[in-house]
Write a protein that binds this DNA or RNA. Structure first.
Lengths: 127, 127
DNA sequence: CTAGAACTTGACACAGGTGTCAGATTCAAG
DNA sequence: CTTGAATCTGACACCTGTGTCAAGTTCTAG
């Protein structure tokens, strides 16, 4: 089994560029020990973690929010998940509301696309 | 009634900045006639249109896609909605799939936030 | 006519995650 | 040791919708 891996393998396994992985580490979203020579060494848990980070990025959270959020999650790196304090809970609640709004909006846009696509495929639609 | 309006009013009524409205026009998402002096004049339909554009932007479509899409929609500006050609339908179908994936991802992220928020509010959770 | 509000164009900057390049260093295999 | 692949750091650029500033023009009320 692969207990430890370097950035190339992590990139390959997650589909995320090395550049991005270094950025994640810089932003505190990812932790890597170093070889004596300075090369990063990631644990198996990093794979899961990177996926989560990508998910949260896609949900519109910025690096700093994700950085606060991650340690409060289970399975992030096996550590005991911290509990969010009041301020963070408030912020996360706001984010959640934003996400809900986003989903709502996406549904509308999806319906819109649907209508156009259907109109184009419908028999009586076009020319 | 307000049959025609200038950019300031449209901005006020849609909550979109004048800057953005000018950009929309530049990108072909919005059409405005001009006064002899060169000031833009928008019709009532522009309000609805701007809202749609915002929606689609939020759904991650870029200007050019929106520009192609708009004329194929009902109520866009009262004109007879054009029918999307095969290429556009294909692109829109891809966008729709992307949006579906996005919604799925948002749901996951939402659940994640939910768990953290709940853990912080739960009695046995923290310190 | 005049003053001031509203509008015009053009340009520059930002956010923020990512691509990419350059030059130096490390690692692993022979 | 040598060599080539992998990694390191740092810097610059991009995208794209939006904010903002500047200087000039138009509109409208008095």
């Amino acid at each position: 089994m692969t207990c430890v891996m370097r950035i190339g393998e992590l990139a390959r396994r997650t589909g995320v560029s090395e550049r991005s992985l270094r950025y994640y580490e810089q932003e505190g979203l990812l932790w890597a020990s170093r070889t004596p020579g300075g090369h990063r060494e990631f644990t198996e848990a990093a794979v899961e973690r990177v996926r989560r980070v990508q998910e949260l990025y896609a949900a519109g959270l910025c690096s700093s929010k994700i950085a606060e959020l991650l340690p409060c999650m289970r399975d992030s790196d096996g550590g005991p998940s911290r509990t969010a304090d009041a301020r963070l809970v408030e912020e996360l609640t706001a984010e959640r509301a934003r996400i809900d709004g986003m989903i709502e909006d996406l549904r509308r846009s999806r319906a819109l696309l649907d209508a156009v696509i259907e109109a184009a495929s419908a028999p009586g639609g076009g020319s």
